[in-house]
Design a protein around this nucleic acid. Structure first.
Lengths: 130, 130
DNA sequence: CTAGGAGCTAGAGGGCCCTCTAGGTCAACA
DNA sequence: TGTTGACCTAGAGGGCCCTCTAGCTCCTAG
C-alpha cells in the first residue's frame, strides 16, 4: 500500500498542509491517520480517497459539521448504512436545489447582460438606472 | 411613486433590516436612500428593484465588494456601460463555472448514493470503507 | 557540521457577511 | 400617560473555514 507524507497529499487533494491537519483535528477523517516513528503523518490511499471525497463535499457546499457527522457514521462501522445514505441523499438534494437557484440567478443576470449589450450597441445606455 | 419603510422592504427583498442598513453603509446601493423628517429611510421602487438584483447577485456568489464596484459604476452615471457589462459578464462566467462545478460534484455524490443504495439493498454494506 | 526543507503542536488571526446589542427617538393607541 | 412597536446609530459579536505564526524536531545534502 502506497504511503504518503502530508506534502504529497496536498498535491493529490488540493488541500493545504494546514487544512489537512485542521480537518484531522476536527474529526473529519474516517480513520485516524497513522504516524511514523517521528510522529509524522502517514497517509494511505484510503485516506486520500476519503479526503478527495471531502473536497467534493466541500466544493458542493457541505459544511464541515456534516462531513464530521458522516465521518462519525463511518467510524462507527457497519450497521448504519441507511443513515449514511440519508445524509448523502439530503446533500444531493441540497446540491440540486443550489444548482436550480444558480440557474435562476444566471437567467436574471443574463437578462441584464442582454439589456446592457443592446443599449451599449445603440448608445442609449443612459436610460438604465438613471 | 410608492414609498416604503425599511420593514416593508424586508418583506419585498428577503433582506433583514440589519442587512439593509449594512448594505447601505457599505455603499452597495446605486442611489442614496431618502430620509423622512424623522431621519427614517424611505425606499422607492427603484431602490427595491436594485436590492432585489443585489440579492440575486449575492445568491449567485457575487462578493459584496463586487456589488459595491457595480454600484459605484452606476452612481458615476452614463458613460461606463461597457465596464458594467464587463463586470456582469465576468460574473455570468463565474456562475456558469460554479454550476458546472456543482454538476461535477453532484455526479460524484450520486455515484456514492448509488453504491450505498445497492449495498444497503443487498446487505453487503460492510464492504464500504472498512 | 550546518543550512534547508519538511514535518510537528497549539493557538492566534483573518476574511466574509451579516446579526445583534445598547441606548436612543418618535408616533400611535389604550 | 405610558407602553408598544417601528425606526435610528455605532459598534461589538459570531459563525464558518481555513491560514498563519512561533517555536520546535528531524533528515539530507553540501
Amino acid at each position: 500500500m502506497t504511503e504518503l507524507a502530508i506534502g504529497q497529499v496536498t498535491d493529490r487533494t488540493g488541500l493545504s498542509v494546514h487544512a489537512l491537519r485542521f480537518y484531522e483535528k476536527e474529526g473529519l477523517l474516517a480513520a485516524p491517520v497513522k504516524r511514523d516513528s517521528n510522529g509524522r503523518r502517514v497517509y494511505t490511499e484510503y485516506d486520500v480517497e476519503w479526503l478527495v471525497n471531502c473536497t467534493k463535499f466541500r466544493a458542493s457546499g457541505m459544511p464541515l459539521a456534516t462531513i464530521r457527522e458522516f465521518a462519525e457514521l463511518v467510524r462507527q462501522g457497519p450497521g448504519n448504512e441507511e443513515e449514511r445514505l440519508e445524509l448523502l441523499r439530503a446533500h444531493q438534494d441540497t446540491v440540486r436545489d443550489r444548482i436550480a437557484e444558480l440557474a435562476d440567478c444566471l437567467e436574471v443576470i443574463s437578462r441584464k447582460v442582454e439589456v446592457y449589450e443592446e443599449h451599449v450597441a445603440r448608445g442609449t445606455a443612459d436610460t438604465l438606472w438613471r
